[in-house]
Write a protein that binds this DNA or RNA. Structure first.
Lengths: 164, 164
DNA sequence: ATAACTGCAAAGTCTTTGCACCTAC
DNA sequence: GTAGGTGCAAAGACTTTGCAGTTAT
């Protein structure tokens, strides 16, 4: 199956992933630079979602010489080879994440909490529906928006005091 | 279930939806204007996804006095009451769609085709996974990216000529 | 040696907002 | 009559891009 070719395990150690990235770049006549390596490593190190800007912050803790432009450019390459994906869109910007093990998201519209989950049965049904349409899935994304348990128990705060 | 309170049918005629929108606005002390009505009707008339800009174009065929700012403002209200949702993000901008009957999407990364589908079993499993997490789903979105049947049969065009 | 990469800053997009005038209620 | 709405244009926020110097191969 193609949905997640990087499912090997949580332990797919950074080493091999870096090698994969280098190979991907090499195949296209692109170069493996310190900045690209730093961006990849920072992305892999993150256990959650990150915006381009947050990633820049993380990268700079290891390799000071990186610009936001390079982060964006590198994110593009990383997405092309499936090592990173755009997880969902938060506020006005994109939230990315390293692809170590697939999962989907629930987003609480009130407190902003993000719950990750993975349902094997849903994955299988997705494969099935793709087959039915002759479609070859390379990646997929599911986001459920609603209220988390905590927020369901708290009263909503209305914009105005309400009427009637 | 909450995932789709507007599932009544494709025939939920414009009349009643407009009434629902008016009610929603009224409940919040907001006003029902010609522009808002025009935006809603144009959105309902669309059988596909549309960007804010495309919607503006459609709206202007019926009600010339509408600005892009108003379209955005109205889209906000329409999303709040569940009549419109952000279907997915295409290129740099959001693609919206009227919510008449729920469905999900497959996007071909090569030709850009969008295939809509709806799998009742997946919907049920989503409900189940939400229950397990104490989450109350209000809306959800699933997008599968990959290659459509046509593109799978055609050879890929590489960026450069390729190297052995 | 050279084609590709980087940082910077400027340019682009899409979206939101301030303001003065207009209008539904 | 008044609170809320609208268009316009300017402002914002995120992302992309041109350019001149730098570097992996």
């Amino acid at each position: 199956m193609n949905v997640n070719s990087n499912k090997a395990g949580l332990a797919d150690d950074v080493q091999s992933v870096v090698r994969a990235f280098r190979g991907h770049l090499h195949d296209r006549g692109l170069r493996f630079t310190a900045q690209r390596k730093a961006v990849l490593e920072a992305a892999l190190a993150s256990q959650t979602h990150f915006t381009a800007d947050q990633l820049l912050g993380a990268v700079r803790e290891r390799e000071s010489s990186v610009s936001l432009a390079t982060v964006y450019r590198t994110l593009g390459h990383l997405q092309e080879c499936g090592l990173v994906r755009e997880a969902f869109r938060a506020e006005g910007c994109s939230a990315y994440e390293a692809v170590h093990g697939h999962h989907d998201h629930m987003l609480c519209i009130r407190c902003g909490k993000v719950i990750e989950f993975c349902d094997e049965q849903i994955e299988q049904l997705q494969e099935r529906v793709c087959r039915r349409h002759g479609f070859e899935a390379l990646d997929h994304r599911m986001g459920i928006r609603g209220l988390c348990g905590d927020c369901r128990r708290r009263p909503a705060k209305r914009k105005d005091g309400g009427r009637s």
